[in-house]
Amino acid sequence: MATGGRRGAAAAPLLVAVAALLLGAAGHLYPGEVCPGMDIRNNLTRLHELENCSVIEGHLQILLMFKTRPEDFRDLSFPKLIMITDYLLLFRVYGLESLKDLFPNLTVIRGSRLFFNYALVIFEMVHLKELGLYNLMNITRGSVRIEKNNELCYLATIDWSRILDSVEDNYIVLNKDDNEECGDICPGTAKGKTNCPATVINGQFVERCWTHSHCQKVCPTICKSHGCTAEGLCCHSECLGNCSQPDDPTKCVACRNFYLDGRCVETCPPPYYHFQDWRCVNFSFCQDLHHKCKNSRRQGCHQYVIHNNKCIPECPSGYTMNSSNLLCTPCLGPCPKVCHLLEGEKTIDSVTSAQELRGCTVINGSLIINIRGGNNLAAELEANLGLIEEISGYLKIRRSYALVSLSFFRKLRLIRGETLEIGNYSFYALDNQNLRQLWDWSKHNLTITQGKLFFHYNPKLCLSEIHKMEEVSGTKGRQERNDIALKTNGDQASCENELLKFSYIRTSFDKI
């Protein structure tokens, strides 16, 4: 039985969820670079991206490699990797027998973001014989899940209580170790020597080791999670996991709180800001991140802002960003909400898709409305799209047979046209069989910064309504002859009103 693990408890099935942008060198404390989270699957090609990484700022997932063999891993080693800020997950990587050479110096898994409450997941690794993470000293947050690894031993010899604050939620089941077939031998045991430290858990006094050649490092209890030197002297209180010299914040392997210019500090002093819960960055760093993602459509890219001495992905609820200094300031009234469309555009074809934009005031991208039916549609669209004030790209209304009016965009005031449909149009209306009105132009103002209007096959939309939009939106004169079809717009509506004058002759039985 794995020490510190839980057996036999019912657990939810383990679901495996399925960018080499360097964020800056980590400095003297770390020998390499800070790398983003990685999802490495199918083959070993991307694994080489770990070569210079000291910190993975995010998670590391290595999974679904069915053609790899043990010899493929023999020359692979990433000794610079010290810390993973989120979680480490391995799933069905064939041929991998140990992690001792792959990650010989991995010391800390912070667990800032977890995989279903777990910071370390080893699942269905069919050839893994031992973990071998002999320098792993601290899992700051989260638990361990090690399950269905039929060859995995050296679990009962690990004292997880020396690595985690609590072992109650560890789930370590259905491994070879369960069948008591392992016969784990710690260093020196074969020669009758006791080389590794022994600890007591559940009444068992057991030597602690990761492999037959690597003991588990056990520091004096007084050192807590700070770690200790090879001689057993406690590291500085700002260290986490390990250090090369005692009581020196510049000799830590990793930091308990924050890293700044080669030393570990309790908090980031001005003019620095907390970033990702582990390091200090200056304003320029946060500003660069903001600008890199301002026009990016890459998933996970955030326009970072500053709030409460932190550089964070977005302002919290009730705050909006001051564009001059990136500071989050309290909103006066309802907060603006910028919604970034991942692929640059979004099609609204149902109430469900409209709900995804609920509360958005600025759309960074283009909207395509293609709704053919739905219950209580006008009210639903207004509830979900009615706060949109600005669209950076274009607005396209296409084959939306259920629409009679666009009044559900009740606050839309600006279409920038930074991206144009077919390279020309910022407003595009095609084949809307029941569209009769755009907006009530006596109450609604709309500016279209650039781009043209396109109207074709809107049989109940009168040309007068379209011409009014040209005047109000500032697009009059931009359109070419064929942009607004004269014969297919309003051709099934009563669009022309003329005053009919009647004269009559009164007659009676005795007068003409």
Rank of each mutant, 00 (worst) to 15 (best):
residue 28 H to Q: 08
residue 28 H to I: 05
residue 29 L to T: 12
residue 32 G to L: 12
residue 34 V to Q: 04
residue 37 G to I: 02
residue 37 G to F: 06
residue 38 M to F: 02
residue 38 M to A: 05
residue 38 M to C: 03
residue 39 D to Q: 08
residue 43 N to G: 10
residue 44 L to C: 03
residue 45 T to E: 15
residue 46 R to C: 14
residue 46 R to L: 07
residue 47 L to E: 01
residue 57 E to P: 00
residue 57 E to F: 03
residue 57 E to I: 07
residue 58 G to A: 00
residue 59 H to K: 04
residue 59 H to S: 08
residue 59 H to Y: 10
residue 60 L to W: 00
residue 61 Q to V: 05
residue 62 I to R: 01
residue 62 I to E: 01
residue 63 L to N: 02
residue 65 M to S: 13
residue 65 M to A: 13
residue 69 R to P: 07
residue 69 R to K: 02
residue 71 E to S: 12
residue 72 D to A: 04
residue 81 L to M: 09
residue 82 I to R: 12
residue 83 M to A: 03
residue 83 M to W: 02
residue 85 T to I: 04
residue 85 T to F: 02
residue 85 T to E: 03
residue 85 T to H: 04
residue 87 Y to Q: 00
residue 89 L to S: 02
residue 91 F to Y: 14
residue 92 R to F: 05
residue 93 V to P: 00
residue 95 G to Q: 09
residue 95 G to W: 05
residue 98 S to I: 02
residue 98 S to H: 04
residue 98 S to Y: 03
residue 98 S to M: 02
residue 102 L to H: 00
residue 103 F to G: 00
residue 105 N to S: 11
residue 106 L to C: 00
residue 106 L to F: 02
residue 108 V to M: 14
residue 110 R to P: 01
residue 112 S to P: 00
residue 112 S to D: 15
residue 113 R to L: 05
residue 115 F to G: 00
residue 117 N to G: 13
residue 118 Y to L: 03
residue 120 L to V: 06
residue 120 L to N: 02
residue 121 V to E: 00
residue 122 I to H: 00
residue 122 I to T: 04
residue 127 H to F: 03
residue 128 L to I: 08
residue 129 K to C: 07
residue 129 K to D: 03
residue 129 K to R: 08
residue 132 G to S: 13
residue 132 G to V: 01
residue 133 L to K: 01
residue 133 L to I: 12
residue 134 Y to L: 07
residue 135 N to R: 07
residue 138 N to S: 14
residue 139 I to N: 01
residue 140 T to G: 05
residue 140 T to C: 12
residue 141 R to P: 01
residue 142 G to Q: 01
residue 144 V to A: 04
residue 144 V to C: 04
residue 144 V to Y: 01
residue 145 R to D: 03
residue 145 R to L: 11
residue 147 E to P: 01
residue 147 E to F: 13
residue 148 K to V: 08
residue 150 N to V: 08
residue 152 L to Q: 08
residue 153 C to K: 14
residue 153 C to F: 02
residue 154 Y to H: 12
residue 157 T to S: 07
residue 157 T to W: 05
residue 157 T to K: 07
residue 158 I to T: 13
residue 158 I to E: 04
residue 160 W to F: 13
residue 161 S to A: 15
residue 161 S to Q: 07
residue 165 D to M: 12
residue 165 D to S: 09
residue 168 E to D: 05
residue 168 E to I: 05
residue 169 D to L: 08
residue 170 N to V: 10
residue 170 N to K: 12
residue 173 V to G: 02
residue 173 V to R: 13
residue 175 N to K: 14
residue 175 N to I: 10
residue 178 D to F: 09
residue 178 D to E: 13
residue 178 D to T: 12
residue 180 E to W: 07
residue 180 E to M: 12
residue 181 E to P: 03
residue 183 G to F: 07
residue 183 G to D: 14
residue 183 G to M: 05
residue 183 G to H: 06
residue 185 I to G: 14
residue 185 I to Q: 13
residue 185 I to P: 09
residue 187 P to E: 14
residue 192 G to I: 02
residue 195 N to L: 11
residue 196 C to P: 09
residue 200 V to Y: 13
residue 201 I to M: 10
residue 202 N to A: 07
residue 202 N to K: 11
residue 202 N to D: 10
residue 203 G to E: 15
residue 203 G to T: 07
residue 204 Q to A: 12
residue 205 F to L: 10
residue 205 F to K: 10
residue 207 E to K: 07
residue 209 C to N: 05
residue 209 C to A: 05
residue 210 W to G: 09
residue 211 T to A: 15
residue 214 H to R: 05
residue 217 K to L: 12
residue 217 K to S: 10
residue 218 V to P: 11
residue 218 V to W: 11
residue 218 V to N: 10
residue 220 P to M: 02
residue 225 S to W: 15
residue 228 C to N: 04
residue 230 A to W: 10
residue 232 G to R: 03
residue 233 L to K: 11
residue 234 C to E: 03
residue 234 C to I: 03
residue 235 C to L: 01
residue 236 H to K: 01
residue 238 E to L: 04
residue 238 E to Q: 15
residue 239 C to F: 00
residue 239 C to D: 00
residue 239 C to Q: 01
residue 239 C to L: 00
residue 241 G to K: 04
residue 247 D to I: 02
residue 249 P to M: 01
residue 253 V to P: 02
residue 256 R to V: 10
residue 257 N to L: 03
residue 257 N to T: 07
residue 259 Y to A: 12
residue 260 L to W: 02
residue 261 D to K: 00
residue 261 D to P: 01
residue 264 C to H: 00
residue 264 C to L: 00
residue 264 C to T: 00
residue 267 T to S: 04
residue 268 C to S: 00
residue 270 P to V: 03
residue 272 Y to R: 02
residue 276 Q to G: 11
residue 277 D to V: 03
residue 279 R to W: 04
residue 279 R to L: 13
residue 279 R to C: 02
residue 283 F to M: 07
residue 283 F to N: 07
residue 289 L to D: 02
residue 289 L to V: 10
residue 290 H to V: 09
residue 290 H to I: 04
residue 290 H to D: 02
residue 291 H to E: 09
residue 291 H to R: 08
residue 293 C to I: 06
residue 294 K to T: 02
residue 294 K to N: 02
residue 294 K to G: 13
residue 295 N to K: 15
residue 296 S to E: 13
residue 297 R to V: 08
residue 298 R to V: 11
residue 298 R to C: 13
residue 299 Q to L: 07
residue 299 Q to M: 08
residue 300 G to L: 10
residue 301 C to S: 05
residue 304 Y to F: 15
residue 304 Y to R: 03
residue 304 Y to D: 02
residue 305 V to C: 08
residue 308 N to W: 09
residue 310 K to I: 07
residue 311 C to K: 03
residue 314 E to R: 13
residue 314 E to Q: 04
residue 315 C to Y: 00
residue 316 P to N: 03
residue 317 S to T: 13
residue 318 G to T: 06
residue 319 Y to P: 01
residue 320 T to V: 11
residue 323 S to I: 06
residue 324 S to W: 14
residue 326 L to Q: 09
residue 327 L to S: 04
residue 332 L to N: 10
residue 333 G to K: 03
residue 335 C to M: 03
residue 335 C to E: 04
residue 335 C to R: 03
residue 336 P to Q: 05
